[in-house]
């Protein structure tokens, strides 16, 4: 019974997830359903719990309530099918190691205890570096790489994991335009190959061009679904609240996609 699949048709299924730091809820009553093969952005204001959401799903921080299923099973049983790209600032880039070595770390899970990475692992890591156009930097010490290059190394480390569901925490933060384009292209290819991509994203301007699924988060889930349905002025206002002034006239969408609702439009004007 314990092995029975729960919501196996979904890449990610989250129910009632609640996380708090010192009595302050960071995530409250999160219900999320993501079909496989989408590229989803998790967007919300600062402190909305975007990073916490990913960390709670990957069991890196404890949750007070709720459960998570990835492709029908708890995360513990699905580690091999999940790839993870933490925030670039989460590690000390002065650490004495090379780009190739960092990518090889993505294979440690498959290697298991005691076994050392060998020629095969190095070749796989090299291929991943080629995929992100970083092969020339394989033997560079990681502190000598630019921010964008470091981010690509992190992405390559997730690529060697050969996962089906990928979680990326702010992969486009503080990177150059070339890197951003490269990352989006690679993620798009993964999605086209049927993988599911979940990206914590900070830039509302690019949501519609990069992603096909959107989760608007602000402690709770404000809205979720295909970008075309969810990316509406009303939803963004509900997610961003008072910060909405910052967004006005800045690629803020018209309320078109939602059915006409005079009352909502009126409240919108009040803002």
């Amino acid at each position: 019974m314990a092995d029975a699949l729960h919501e196996p048709q979904l890449a990610l299924h989250v129910e009632d997830l609640t996380v708090s730091y010192q009595n302050k809820p960071v995530l409250w009553d999160i219900d999320l359903d993501l079909p496989p093969g989408v590229m989803a952005a998790v967007v919300g204001p600062n402190g909305a719990g975007k990073t916490s959401l990913i960390k709670a799903i990957l069991e890196l921080i404890p949750s007070l309530a709720g459960h998570v299923r990835i492709l029908g099973k708890p995360y513990r049983q699905q580690r091999g099918r999940v790839g993870y790209v933490p925030q670039r600032s989460a590690v000390d880039w002065e650490f004495p190691t090379t780009a190739l070595d960092v990518v090889t770390m993505g294979l440690y899970g498959r290697l298991g205890w005691l076994r050392r990475p060998g020629r095969r692992e190095r070749e796989e890591a090299m291929q991943a570096l080629e995929q992100v156009a970083m092969a020339d930097f394989a033997h560079r010490q990681i502190s000598q790489l630019s921010g964008g290059q470091q981010q690509r190394v992190f992405l390559a480390r997730a690529l060697v994991q050969q996962a089906e569901v990928y979680f990326l925490d702010e992969p486009m933060a503080g990177v150059d335009a070339t890197t951003e384009r490269a990352i989006v292209n690679i993620l798009g290819e993964l999605r086209d190959a049927g993988k599911t991509i979940i990206v914590v994203h900070h830039d509302l301007q690019t949501v519609r061009t990069y992603f096909d699924w959107l989760v608007l988060l602000n402690v709770g889930v404000v809205a979720q679904g295909p970008v075309s349905e969810v990316y509406t002025a009303a939803n963004l206002r509900r997610a961003y609240g008072g910060q909405v002034a910052l967004l006005e006239g800045n690629g803020m969408p018209a309320d078109k996609p939602t059915p006409p609702d005079p009352q909502r439009d009126q409240t919108g004007d009040v803002f």
């Binding site: 960390k55 990957l58 069991e59 890196l60 513990r76 580690r79 999940v82 993870y84 933490p86 989460a90 590690v91 000390d92 650490f95 190691t97 960092v102 770390m105 440690y108 899970g109 290697l111 205890w113 050392r116 990475p117 480390r157």
Partner: peptide, 18 residues
């Protein structure tokens, strides 16, 4: 060796890996 290296360099990635 490799476990210590990963835990020191990137503990949250190490934890996600199990």
């Amino acid at each position: 060796w490799k476990e210590f290296k990963l835990v020191v360099f990137d503990p949250s990635f190490a934890a996600a890996m199990g």
